[in-house]
């Protein structure tokens, strides 16, 4: 078992024939991901990486039965691409592109929600179910199969956390990069219950960052709903105070979004909070032993 994706998941790539899209689609194929086609307007009918190219997502879905789309289109076109995927009946859009305008993501996410499509990202490394399906840009080789679920705002901390879990002799069920932009798709509070329900996941690693209050919300949910052990790290304890002109944003969320505040909330919810990412592996070992 795993969450959201597995070896049978059919994936298309939006922005398939571009430089980034091509490079990473090829890596995903090599990992074993069932990429069944891709979309690049005006290249419909061609073949790329041995897979068919379509002009529209609707055509691609109709002819391949894909349920997940991996999005690599340039930042200015991300909103458009997400909305197209939503209307074409995609279940999950994994948005890798960095630098999508926030306004576009507000619109696109609202539209996706209306059409029942889940989104991940933007500006995230993607999602991987170890040794089955990789949809994203992470180095697949470090993800050994195992019983630890991982959720992270940061791409490279996803790799760091995974590497330590695997070096301790454990492995990963599914690792999910959620991104750290102001508007993101699936977050801790949607993913934690999925890991709780997944029979193979025995422990959850959660990696957060300063800013916003998603980790505070997660602490509340963990206290109420999550019975599996959770290990957390919040990056940015030593980060300087943000150089903003106004502080209206902090008032809206009702919290300053500091690492300290988040770490305390998680600790109060029974989470094992580590002060350095170098301690994630050992903390997981302890958590697994206690079970």
């Amino acid at each position: 078992m795993s969450i959201l994706i597995n070896k049978d998941t059919k994936v298309i790539v939006q922005g398939f024939t571009g430089k980034e899209g091509s490079f990473h689609a090829e890596q995903c194929l090599a990992y074993g991901t069932k990429i069944v086609g891709g979309v690049t307007p005006n290249k419909g009918g061609q073949e790329h990486l041995g897979r068919p190219v379509f002009n529209t997502v609707a055509e691609a879905v109709k002819s391949t039965g894909a349920t997940v789309s991996m999005i690599f289109v340039p930042p200015a076109f991300v909103g458009d691409a997400v909305m197209e995927a939503a209307e074409a009946g995609i279940d999950l859009a994994v948005i890798i592109t960095e630098g999508a305008p926030v306004k576009d993501m507000q619109m696109a996410k609202a539209h996706a929600t209306k059409h029942g499509m889940k989104t991940l990202g933007p500006n995230c490394p993607g999602i991987i179910t170890a040794e089955e399906c990789k949809i994203g840009i992470m180095p697949g080789s470090i993800f050994k199969k195992g019983n630890v679920g991982l959720i992270s705002k940061s791409g490279t901390l996803t790799y760091e956390g995974t590497n330590q879990v695997c070096n301790e002799g454990f492995g990963i069920t599914t690792a999910v990069g959620i991104g750290g932009d102001p508007i993101i798709g699936l977050s801790y509070n949607q993913l934690l219950p999925m890991f709780e329900a997944d029979p193979e996941t025995e422990c959850i690693v959660m990696i957060g960052e300063i800013g916003g209050d998603l980790e505070i919300q997660a602490a509340k949910l963990i206290k109420e709903q999550i019975t599996k052990p959770v290990v957390a790290f919040i990056a940015g304890q030593t980060a300087p105070k943000g150089k903003t002109m106004g502080h209206a944003g902090a008032i809206v969320s009702g919290s300053a979004g500091t690492a300290k505040e988040k770490m305390e909330a998680l600790e109060a919810a029974g989470v094992t909070v580590v002060v350095s990412p170098a301690e994630i592996g050992k903390a997981v070992t302890k958590a697994m032993a206690k079970k």
Partner: peptide, 18 residues
């Protein structure tokens, strides 16, 4: 000198911790 904002902050945190 680190790749990724998260790992960069995590590296700073680790230096501080040590």
């Amino acid at each position: 000198m680190v790749n990724g904002a998260g790992l960069a902050m995590g590296t700073m945190d680790t230096i501080n911790y040590m």
